[in-house]
Design a protein around this nucleic acid. Structure first.
Lengths: 222, 222, 222, 222
DNA sequence: CATGAATGAGCTTTCATTCAT
DNA sequence: CATGAATGAAAGCTCATTCAT
């Protein structure tokens, strides 16, 4: 989905017709690569790395099997680059967050709201589960994910917690040592949706609200 | 090979009669099955379902490849039964917990301590990650795990939380709706150990302490 | 052909019936291996290493593709071991040659006669051409062939030449430095049969006679 | 890439007009073809026909893969035409040999000297081995080689031998039936250099000297 | 019951050939 | 003419499963 936007954008001009006459070669190649990445993500999420067939990725991407090898060295590097490709824009957006104005609770609630909308129960959430699943077999992936997402996320959360403590919004001072506690319910929600949603749907939004109440104290007015 | 000699030895005596002398056949079969289950768990955890070779399981279990098929229909059912086999005694022990005496916080702390010792960073923790990883491909596994472990665990936690609320130990009344919040940091610790321990070791015990402080209020005396 | 003898020998006992009920497992395995080696030699000779398909070898050997991998690590080692397997008995027979009695010329003529019958224009001759063809890509094969066949052959020829010189049968004393000259026409005959036989058949026997006349002087009586 | 710049440069001038200024198209095409032939020979010699990749030939020749198909129908015909292209000038030079003056031995020694310098241990020698290697798979190549090189060479050698016999330089009259004997050591030297040079270097020049002594009798004075 | 050799479908990867640019 | 991205048939190799011993 992410990469599709690029493609969709570059196609807009021909949106009124039916046949895509293709722009220049570089663009075509980029589109193909994006299609492969998207198809691969879909397949890897559904079947896992080992059980995914390149044949299926090619079919879903609408390219020949050999084409995949014009963009990726082999299945492994495809998987690793795929994670990079999908993660990078996410990190970029996090880095481009607006400067912290308002109360820490508001900030975190906004953030939680975005997470809820854009991760939990979406393809992006499935990617997280995929990384949990394949991480041990792909140290490069786990490393990358830790470096780019986890460590930055933890640092950001810690800063917010410290701000909250300084402002008197948060009483539990040791929380700054374990930003994981802050995000744990959100992560659990991600996993829950993947595994147990059909047995017992989870109101993630409400759960996150309760969790924030636990940390910041109950809100007087909603 | 090891087991072969044993087997040959235990068979000789019954060659002339009908009665099994020392350890009977059923026992030996059960031992074999246990060895296979153990070996399979090891391999599945390290390589995941699809990438695990029956050959390796057989070698590790010290049996022939064909023997596996005397105990399991195929690779899939082996995986599913394996999870059952490993999970069941855990559930049994949870059911056999001592009746709740003392404060709710003490109870939960005891429970967390056990979890810390017996799950986080152990083979059992890896099994949890394995279920997260393979769950979507094995509805039977996810179902079983939800029914036997998750739903019971959630129910137990909810009961404890309600008790804590009734006794005034817990102030956040809505917490009873989301026992997931109570266990989330513990689950995160399990996953963290599998994926990021070498980048940033996590003091799970201390984290859980902070989390309980958040729920029950800080302890006055240690 | 070489290896078949082994197989044929072990089959003799059942030669009166039609169905090969198979002896013990080890024998069966050895037979299969021999069949693979023979089929592989045939295919490699006809198509060369790179163009030979394992599928065809398997089909010709009457086994499944996977069976080949029970006996050989991969295509390359199959080729290398094949050469070894086929060459070894040849070397063994050379080593078991009768002690040199009679004139040197008679000895060499006998040897040439055997070579004529058993190498030139036979599968064994094709193998020589195969080694010439693939040697540069398979140093291990060229090494082995040099060590086991060429260097020994050269040493043997040199000894014979020196004996001939000592006895006054050979006048050209420097010939001992280049036993290659002695065998060159025989080797050329091998190659000629492979490449040009259909354009211009070569009477190898007569050519070798002329060559020996050149070295030993013309024979008075035939 | 190298050639690209040249090409671009040579094309610019004709952009405004129609006439090719400096080197015309036919010349450029011929150069390209020559580059492809050269590169192909190199690759075929090193890897053999089947294992050679057109990609590598194109890269080495500095042209695009598609360009090869402007000059050759497919890989097979490229190989066949390549052999022709490389062999033809050699044959031409042989035909342009100076008229036989001086003794036959001198003639042959001169010839052997040239062979030594220009074939044994050179790329041209490798080509001979390549033809030996691939000949059976490429009847057209073997045919061509036999017709253009072997049969002519044999005829020439036979004429020389007959001359030598007539002049009394050669005593072995039957040698004229087997000119192969005359060239055999030279061919063996070619093959030896390809396969065994690193195990046991061969002094081809001295070997040929000894061989000629065998045929013509030892030289009294050098 | 237990074995492990044998099977062959299926998977990843390569590469000759084509053709729109 | 020249290019090189794209194709897809084909090849090497693996491994779950079977079954004669």
């Amino acid at each position: 989905m992410t990469n599709r936007s690029t493609k969709a954008a570059s196609r807009k001009p021909e949106a009124d017709g039916e046949a895509p006459p293709a722009s220049n070669r570089a663009t075509r190649a980029a589109e193909r690569r994006a299609a492969i990445v998207e198809a691969a993500m879909e397949e890897f999420i559904v079947r896992g790395f080992a059980a995914t067939r390149l044949d299926d990725i090619a079919k879903r991407a609408g390219v020949a099997k050999g084409t995949i090898y014009l963009h990726f060295k082999d299945k492994e590097s495809m998987f690793e680059e795929l994670v990079r490709t999908v993660i990078v824009p996410v990190v970029a957006r996090l880095n481009a967050l607006p400067p912290p104005t308002g109360s820490v609770r508001d900030l975190i609630e906004t953030f939680a709201g975005n997470f809820l909308k854009e991760v939990i129960g979406t393809r992006r959430g499935d990617l997280v589960r995929l990384i949990v699943a394949e991480g041990p077999r792909f140290p490069a992936v786990a490393d990358f994910y830790y470096r780019e997402v986890v460590s930055r996320g933890m640092a950001g959360m810690r800063a917010l917690i410290e701000l909250g403590i300084a402002r008197g919004e948060i009483r539990e001072r040791d929380l700054a040592h374990y930003p994981q506690i802050l995000v744990a319910p959100a992560m659990i929600a991600v996993i829950w949706q993947s595994l147990f949603a059909r047995h017992a749907p989870l109101d993630a939004q409400d759960m996150l609200r309760v969790h924030l109440d636990l940390i910041f104290g109950e809100r007087r007015t909603t």
